[in-house]
Amino acid sequence: MRRTTTFLLPLIALTAACAPPPSSTTPTAPPTSRGGATPVLQVPGIPPKPDTATQAAYIADLDAIDPEIVNGNPDRAVTRGRDQCTSVAKAPGDQVKLVELTAQRFTSPGHPTGFGPDVSARILAVVRKHICPSY
């Protein structure tokens, strides 16, 4: 027993000496959703999901342009809008590029290559109005 203790004490001391120093900052909890239970992924440029009223207004505005934009799938339309906001955050003043990216993101079975530049510009305006108004 003494032989084991004699061997382990220097080993423990050596391990403690080689360990990295404790962090000087206090770890913080990850951000949570409004309910406080589910962590929220914080990615620059991606806005939070809109509340129910904002989503309804967003979907109504897209449907007013062309019902095929939403095509019965409002969650997909919201996801595409939030994704578009990443491009808006990267190049807020490059309208031509943003319209091109909107045309690539917003497609449908009847418009597999997008809705064209005029409709895409209108879609982009709706995205900016409802999904990322501060960008």
Rank of each mutant, 00 (worst) to 15 (best):
12 I>D: 04
49 K>I: 14
99 V>K: 04
103 A>Q: 13
13 A>E: 03
12 I>V: 12
92 P>K: 10
67 P>M: 10
40 V>Q: 09
119 V>F: 07
49 K>T: 14
96 V>L: 14
27 P>Q: 04
62 L>C: 08
83 D>Q: 14
133 P>I: 08
29 A>P: 03
39 P>Q: 11
77 A>I: 01
76 R>S: 11
6 T>W: 15
24 S>D: 12
107 T>G: 04
59 I>P: 00
6 T>A: 13
106 F>W: 14
37 A>G: 11
45 G>Y: 11
58 Y>I: 05
29 A>D: 14
29 A>G: 03
126 V>C: 06
38 T>S: 12
47 P>H: 06
65 I>S: 12
99 V>H: 03
118 D>F: 09
12 I>E: 08
101 L>I: 07
47 P>E: 03
47 P>R: 01
103 A>R: 11
121 A>N: 09
24 S>Y: 12
129 K>E: 12
61 D>N: 06
36 G>D: 07
55 Q>P: 01
90 K>C: 07
49 K>P: 00
35 G>K: 02
107 T>W: 10
16 A>I: 12
36 G>P: 03
70 V>I: 02
19 A>I: 04
34 R>W: 06
25 T>W: 15
78 V>S: 00
75 D>W: 09
18 C>W: 11
111 H>V: 09
40 V>N: 05
115 F>Q: 04
74 P>H: 09
72 G>V: 14
93 G>L: 06
119 V>A: 10
106 F>R: 05
92 P>R: 10
19 A>N: 09
118 D>M: 06
100 E>S: 05
17 A>T: 11
52 T>R: 14
109 P>D: 09
135 Y>N: 03
91 A>M: 00
82 R>D: 00
44 P>H: 09
12 I>G: 10
79 T>A: 06
25 T>V: 14
46 I>E: 15
54 T>Y: 01
39 P>G: 12
39 P>D: 09
10 P>V: 09
130 H>Y: 13
21 P>D: 04
5 T>L: 12
31 P>L: 07
86 T>D: 05
80 R>I: 12
14 L>A: 15
110 G>F: 10
56 A>H: 10
69 I>T: 02
133 P>D: 04
31 P>V: 08
119 V>R: 07
27 P>F: 00
35 G>C: 06
123 I>G: 01
51 D>P: 05
128 R>D: 03
25 T>M: 13
5 T>Q: 07
116 G>A: 14
97 K>Q: 02
14 L>N: 02
99 V>M: 05
8 L>D: 03
11 L>Q: 15
39 P>K: 14
38 T>R: 15
70 V>E: 01
131 I>F: 09
79 T>Q: 02
53 A>R: 00
26 T>W: 08
117 P>M: 03
100 E>L: 09
54 T>H: 02
78 V>Y: 00
35 G>Y: 10
130 H>E: 07
61 D>M: 02
37 A>W: 10
75 D>A: 12
111 H>E: 11
